[in-house]
Simulated assay, not measured.
Amino acid sequence: MKLPTNFMSIGIARALATSAMAALISFTLACNSTDEHTGDQPNVTVTETATGTVNTPTPPEPSSTATSAYLSEMDPLTSTQGVDTSSAEVNGRGYARSVTLTASAGGPVNEVEYNLGRHWKRFEATIGLRDDSPTGSKLTFQVSVDEKNLFSRSVSLGEDFRTDLDIDGALRLKLTVTYTGQDSNYIYGTWGDAQLAAMES
């Protein structure tokens, strides 16, 4: 039986469409396979987060047994008229770590007390009047520990004296300057580089 011409055309068109669809599917599968093997993937940024313990460096702890300490770096327990811990010049020489007490006719005695905690063996300092004190000035310097006087000396402007005192096991250290003149100007008594030395272990 002979089919009509238009019916044959429709069959051919359908066959061609089916072949084209099959070719498109084959091409798409081939492209996906190529992407998987070549790693041709979209640009993706991946951030990894560590789940373990993070060790953060910490600064070393200071030694529990210091061998020395400057009084200028310590807080006093009490002071009569305040303490100046800035650098000072005594008899032409500079001392960067000083303790200076002021005295005058209006406040002739000035003292400061420190807690030693029975950790220290010796007290060292250079004593003298700070060079900007009035001409002719004079002060008496005293050092005592636990209410016991260890040192006392009258010092005039332009003089300096080195002290090295045994304070082995003392609890309190007291420094005192006393003014005995009549001048109303302030006079500055300095303990240059006043330092504590530790007890032997």
Score class of each variant (00 low, 15 high):
Ala88Asp: 02
Leu150Gln: 01
Tyr70Ser: 04
Thr176Ile: 14
Ser64Asn: 13
Ala66Ser: 14
Thr58Gln: 13
Thr85Asp: 07
Ser137Ile: 08
Asp40Ser: 12
Ala23Tyr: 03
Thr126Cys: 04
Leu77Arg: 09
Glu159Val: 07
Asp193Lys: 01
Pro134Met: 02
Thr178Leu: 11
Leu116Gln: 03
Met74Gln: 10
Gly128Pro: 03
Pro42Leu: 12
Ala17Asp: 09
Val46Ala: 11
Ser72Ile: 09
Gly192Glu: 00
Asn6Leu: 12
Pro59Asn: 10
Lys174Trp: 03
Ala88Arg: 12
Leu16Arg: 15
Thr140Ile: 11
Gly11Ile: 15
Gly189His: 06
Thr78His: 09
Gly92Pro: 04
Leu24Asn: 11
Asn110Gly: 07
His119Tyr: 09
Val112Lys: 11
Gly192His: 01
Ile127Asp: 00
Pro62Ala: 05
Leu77Ser: 11
Ala69Ile: 13
Asn115Tyr: 12
Phe151Ile: 02
Leu139Gln: 05
Gly192Lys: 00
Arg122Phe: 11
Leu173Val: 08
Met199Tyr: 01
Phe151Gln: 01
Thr58Gly: 08
Ser154Phe: 03
Thr53Cys: 08
Thr140Gln: 05
Leu150His: 01
Pro57Met: 07
Ser104Lys: 04
Glu200Asn: 07
Gly181Ala: 09
Ile127Glu: 01
Ala197Glu: 07
Tyr188Cys: 03
Thr190Tyr: 00
Gly136Phe: 10
Arg118Val: 10
Asn55Glu: 10
Ala30Tyr: 06
Phe27Asp: 05
Ser87Ile: 04
Thr38Cys: 03
Asp168Gly: 09
Asp183Cys: 00
Ser154Lys: 09
Gly92Asp: 03
Glu159Arg: 06
Thr78Asp: 08
Glu111His: 14
Lys138His: 03
Ala88Trp: 00
Ser68Val: 05
Thr5Ser: 09
Thr163Cys: 06
Asp193Ser: 06
Tyr186Leu: 15
Ser19Tyr: 07
Asp160His: 10
Glu124Ile: 15
Thr163Gln: 05
Lys138Phe: 02
Pro108Lys: 08
Val83Leu: 10
Ala69Lys: 13
Asn185Met: 12
Ala198Gln: 04
Asp160Ser: 12
Ala194Ser: 12
